[in-house]
Design a protein around this nucleic acid. Structure first.
Length: 461
DNA sequence: GCAAATGATTTCAG
DNA sequence: CTGAAATCATTTGC
């Protein structure tokens, strides 16, 4: 108000407060004079300004009529442009104050999360992403908890629908409000100077207000998703023991690779497929198994013997097959080591083991070049022969057979080391530090100056 | 109901 | 990132 008065004074030196008349009803006609002299112009401007100032006191019809009259006034364009100019000048300082603000990191985080969860983004793809996220988060077997998954998906879809509905509502309201305000401003711009920039600024203000509401919506949607996730996908709460068969397969691999129970990525995938579990579950299982085995070897003795026996008979079959087919040099299925189904087999026949040994050393000698018949070195050498090629057909068989061989040997010899103190099975694979022997750099080969405390049943028969 | 077993997670180191 | 170790949370067997 104060500013307005000042502007008006600046315009023509007209003092409004000193103007006669109450309520504008008794205003002199706008076109009273020719206005060729300076005083006449001042009078004109004074009249116009006064009419503008008092227009709000009039009834709607009167004001409408007056507005039309003012718009047609000959002085109007000049007066208007001057007002615009002044306003432009005063408005600059205001506009300069508020710069373009950077994108809100909080909002970006929320957006990213909603996108990742499949709540935001395209409808179809979003659903698929959500399903994938659900599957990944649960880490469970496919199909095992598919009911929970579908339940989760349904809830997520619900959240997505609510989110989109609300978002649309907000957007619509925002647009409506913006249009309304813009219309209002455009309308007003006929009677008061409003630059397009000002309209733009107003629109921005409105959008900011609405986007803060949107952010709240996004925030609460994120919270809802998080709650949903924690309720449905907390794997720890929904833990299921693996099937007997899966445990069997994993144990067979573990005990047949006891020297180096670290399945390669390929081996993990293979095991995961066989066990109908995920690769990370295989990793978990081996992690747990290693640590628990190492912690209490004695406790796992029986299990170790059992699986050693299973693998032994399996290897025996494999070797027998290999011997039979040695001419063709075609190995048996690389997975045979895991699929021991003969539950009734009892490994108490020394002949079996000896046959196995003989077969191992003589039968397939055409395929594998064997070094000095020292078991430890033999094992290591063969292991290094097979190397990392677990996936390779020959490599897998050799590895499995050699490991089996080691069990058989330790069992046959009745060896008892100081650490395990077990006559049937010894933790030959653990080194003095309590870690597994690194198969790729066996100390028995590359470091002959091994400490006296190290345990190596391999070299003891 | 309890203890053991077990799958998963967390924390830390390399 | 992987693996060791500790720990958590649940399942299982008694």
């Amino acid at each position: 108000m104060d500013e307005q008065a000042r502007i008006m004074q600046t315009l023509g030196g007209v003092n409004l407060s000193g103007h006669p008349g109450q309520g504008g009803m008794t205003l002199p006609p706008p076109h009273g004079h020719d206005g060729t002299d300076v005083d006449g112009r001042k009078q004109d401007i004074g009249d116009i300004l006064h009419q503008i100032m008092t227009i709000t006191d009039q009834s709607l019809d009167e004001a409408q009529a007056k507005k039309h009259g003012l718009n047609c006034h000959r002085m109007k364009p000049a007066l208007f442009s001057v007002l615009c100019e002044i306003k432009e000048k005063t408005g600059l300082s205001i506009r300069g104050a508020q710069e373009e603000e950077p994108p809100d990191p909080q909002l970006m985080r929320l957006d990213n999360m909603l996108l990742a969860e499949g709540v935001a983004g395209p409808e179809k793809g979003g659903g698929a992403a959500a399903a994938a996220a659900a599957a990944a988060a649960s880490g469970g077997a496919a199909g095992d908890n598919s009911i929970e998954h579908s339940d989760y998906r349904a809830k997520l879809t619900q959240i997505r629908q609510i989110y989109h509905t609300e978002l649309e509502k907000y957007e619509q309201a925002c647009n409506e409000f913006t249009t309304h305000v813009m219309n209002l401003l455009r309308e007003q711009s006929r009677t008061r100077p409003i630059s397009p920039k000002e309209i733009e600024r107003m629109v921005n203000i409105i959008h900011r207000k609405f986007s803060s509401i949107q952010m709240q919506l996004k925030q609460s949607t994120c919270e809802a998703v998080m709650i949903l996730r924690s309720r449905f996908l907390d794997a720890r709460r929904k833990r299921r023991n693996f099937s007997k068969q899966a445990t069997e397969i994993l144990n067979e691999y573990f005990y047949s690779h006891l020297s180096n129970p670290y399945p390669s990525e390929e081996a993990k995938e293979e095991l995961a497929k066989k066990c109908s579990i995920t690769v990370s579950q295989v990793s978990n299982w081996f992690g747990n198994k290693r640590i628990r085995y190492k912690k209490n070897i004695g406790k796992f003795q029986e299990e170790a013997n059992l699986y050693a026996a299973k693998t032994a008979v399996n290897a025996a079959h494999a070797v027998a097959a290999a011997v039979q087919n040695s001419q063709t040099n075609s190995p048996t299925t690389p997975n045979s080591g895991f699929q021991m189904k003969d539950e009734e087999f009892q490994l108490d026949s020394a002949e079996n083991k000896n046959t196995l040994l003989t077969n191992m050393f003589t039968g397939s000698s055409g395929s594998y070049s064997l070094p000095t018949p020292n078991t430890g070195d033999l094992f290591m050498s063969m292991q290094s022969l097979s190397g990392d090629s677990y996936q390779g057909q020959v490599g897998a068989n050799v590895q499995s057979q050699v490991d089996t061989l080691r069990h058989v040997i330790s069992q046959t010899a009745g060896y008892s080391d100081g650490l395990g103190g077990n006559a049937m099975y010894s933790p030959h694979s653990l080194n003095a530090n309590g870690g597994w022997q690194d198969a790729t750099t066996p100390s028995s080969i590359i470091s002959p100056t091994e400490g006296p405390g190290s345990v190596h049943s391999d070299t003891s028969i």
